[in-house]
Design a binder for these strands. Structure first.
Lengths: 255, 255
DNA sequence: CCATCTTTGTGCACACGTTCACAAACGCAT
DNA sequence: ATGCGTTTGTGAACGTGTGCACAAAGATGG
């Protein structure tokens, strides 16, 4: 379940405030999900809350951490030390969750040798040695799109079995290797899409092509509009904390 | 539809190679989705491909760009010019898709006045003026988590109606404002989760809590394992290009 | 002009995730 | 001890998204 990290974050926040127990309702609100969904998720874990009371915060934190594998440390290599690579190397959220940057790698001789986040940038050719020596199983790709597949192949060859890809490319990997893709510009495009709709479907010439099309097409356009925009107005009702679930798919996905 | 940006990327790649038409099958492979799904998506757009031939690349590019609102330019402000803010300011994928960085903002006097990606970093207090003056409707938050809600409120107050949040916090916004959240550490956690499973469910003492629980709980654990790990082995079969759809939810979501 | 081949568009069924609603369980006060 | 309020765990219905499979439609060659 990909919601576990969400719960974990909310739970650690509670834990820091020394809250002993939470009801599913409270925790669901904090995580921005439905309470029934949360209870069902926890039931899959087999984790027992106590009826009439709620869930023990510490116990849940421990249990979810275990389930996510956060009790062991995960060495990761970051390949491509440009702006994004720098940012990720410095990102505090990694270290605090058991992810240790094993090495920063780049192919550019000008970059190799410099330091980022206190770590030296090493050359790509050391990849195999590092991966093998430190048992690295997770790689992060922050190279330009052109180099991504090549880097990916090399990571896989070296023994990496999970890849987080920030390059805007569809990576091809053999069976048994997981790839997750984060595309920053897609996120903005989705926002722009909604924004355009909010702007009232364009007053003048800049109209959506759909609205200039003949009969059946316009109907389809209206349908699409309901599907995306209509649902939103329902979910976003004045909602204070739980800005919950809309049906919009995400731009982050496997491969 | 959140898949449109994916299609668009694949299509622009084809367009640059001067490919006149594509079949749904080809394009689907390039985008990593099912061909039927792609055809259905396009049918919602009302866009007509020609049977026996395929879709006209240029026409589709134009149409999808229009639908996504990429034909107009979208000024965005980036608040919080740390490592991530820097990276985003330099990110090429934005400018190439109609997103223009209207301003970089930060509250830290030490940062204000420096330049990033050729733009001066200005003080938070200029936010309202900038948003109003340049009609900014999209804001990006790359501040530390503690400041995120505060910044968010101010953005909304100033007139921003779409927010891309990189801070690991659940933002509370009034109705009518869209929030998308990108949490980099969650992506890694999900990879670690899969990685742990691949490692053969722990040989010795570091076992998942699930496996030490009594009967019914273990059954549930097995069920969970099938749900997440089992499905994967099905989808990832030697797959060359289409590493397609697994059921895994994403870490990027509204609010 | 007709036959054939390719590719779209879509009806249908299935499977999944989500949500509701309720019964069983637990604490607590009387 | 017993009843009451609270909260979990889950069975069942619902909606949605996905994928299959096929018919309609256009192009192409004879």
């Amino acid at each position: 379940m990909a919601r576990l990290p969400l719960y974990l974050r909310a739970l650690t926040a509670l834990s820091e405030r020394s809250v002993p127990t939470v009801s599913s309702e409270e925790l669901a609100a904090a995580a921005g999900v439905n309470s029934a969904k949360l209870r069902k998720d926890f039931s899959y874990l087999g984790s027992y809350g106590t009826r009439g009371v709620g869930y023990d915060v510490e116990y849940l934190v421990y249990q979810i951490s275990r389930e996510l594998g956060l009790t062991q440390d995960w060495p990761v290599v970051i390949v491509g030390i440009g702006n994004l690579g720098h940012a990720l190397a410095n990102y505090g959220g990694f270290a605090s969750r058991g992810f240790r940057v094993a090495a920063l790698l780049d192919a550019d001789p000008n970059v190799v040798g410099s330091t980022a986040a206190g770590l030296p940038v090493r050359h790509m050719d050391e990849l195999e040695e590092i991966v093998a020596g430190q048992q690295v199983s997770i790689g992060v790709i922050t190279t330009p799109p052109g180099a991504a597949q090549q880097v990916c192949d090399r990571l896989v060859e070296a023994g990496v079995t999970s890849i987080l890809n920030f390059a805007p490319t569809v990576l091809t990997v053999p069976d048994g290797v997981d790839v997750r893709k984060v595309d920053l510009s897609i996120e903005l495009q989705i926002l722009a899409f909604h924004e355009q709709r909010k702007a009232g479907d364009e007053p003048s010439a800049g109209d959506s092509v759909l609205d200039r099309a003949p009969g059946p097409v316009r109907a389809a356009a209206a349908k699409l509009r309901r599907a995306a925009g209509g649902a939103k107005s329902e979910q976003a009702k004045a909602t204070p904390a739980a800005t919950g679930t809309d049906g919009e798919m995400s731009a982050v996905m496997p491969a």
